[in-house]
């Protein structure tokens, strides 16, 4: 594995479309559930251990080389919100584009051929990690970090939250991100049927509501 490739892939500036998504933070801010660093931390912790864990398992599975169609179907089954399924496929397409330009190779080409309308983003993330010479743990770490990094950045923009305090939230969650990545990877080694299926119903509900807002800053 190359540690620097992991940094390139996990960098928030990696041009794969994530900047336009809040991971549910915009709806939570509007509802008053996220209003400061403490409530951001609670939101991120909840997302990490639910949607984050599930995404990390799918990413680890794809990086391990599990069947991509089975993984994508598993992702669909774990994403009850149509708005979030659409967002995940769109982000998957965007990541696939960036990944193919960054680490070109037969694995990503095959994925693009098999899923011309895009696979779920965590599945693409895992294949990308593999193309970058990274392992399943790395893919799971990226997914776990994305699960909290997106909402934290969005909250800085939405609330004018002190960026140092938002970043400190991420740092405090680091041990839990490691734990989630380890659990996800261990499950992926057992096969697709063993992948985590944790979900956050409120995130699913508010994602559907958010998708219907006429005025919003973020795509999801």
């Amino acid at each position: 594995m190359t540690r620097s490739a992991l940094l390139v892939l996990a960098d928030g500036r990696f041009p794969a479309g994530g900047h336009a998504h809040s991971g549910g933070a915009e709806a939570a801010v509007k509802a008053g559930r996220v209003r400061d660093a403490a409530s951001l931390e609670a939101f991120c912790r909840g997302r990490l251990h639910t949607a984050g864990l599930t995404a990390a398992g799918l990413a680890a599975g794809a990086a391990l080389g599990l069947d991509l169609h089975e993984l994508d179907a598993a992702a669909d089954a774990r994403t009850p919100s149509p708005a979030l399924r659409a967002a995940a496929r769109r982000l998957g397409r965007q990541l696939m584009r960036a990944a193919r330009a960054t680490w070109p190779g037969p694995g990503l080409d095959a994925l693009a051929a098999a899923f011309p309308r895009g696979a779920h983003q965590p599945v693409v993330l895992g294949v990308t990690a593999r193309a970058a010479g990274l392992g399943p743990e790395d893919a799971a770490h990226c997914a776990a970090y994305e699960a909290v990094g997106g909402p934290a950045t969005a909250t800085v923009r939405l609330l004018g939250l002190d960026p140092y305090r938002a970043t400190a939230v991420l740092a405090r969650l680091a041990p839990e991100m490691d734990e989630v990545a380890a659990r996800a990877t261990a499950a992926a080694r057992e096969g697709v049927d063993a992948l985590p299926a944790a979900s956050a119903p409120l995130l699913d509900i508010t994602a559907e509501q958010h998708a219907a807002w006429p005025v919003r800053l973020f795509a999801s």
Binding site: P15, H19, A20, A98
Partner: peptide, 15 residues
């Protein structure tokens, strides 16, 4: 554009 129109046309053009 996630509150950043210049990002979507310059830094991350994927969308």
């Amino acid at each position: 554009t996630g509150a950043c129109p210049h990002t979507a046309i310059r830094d991350d053009i994927s969308a």
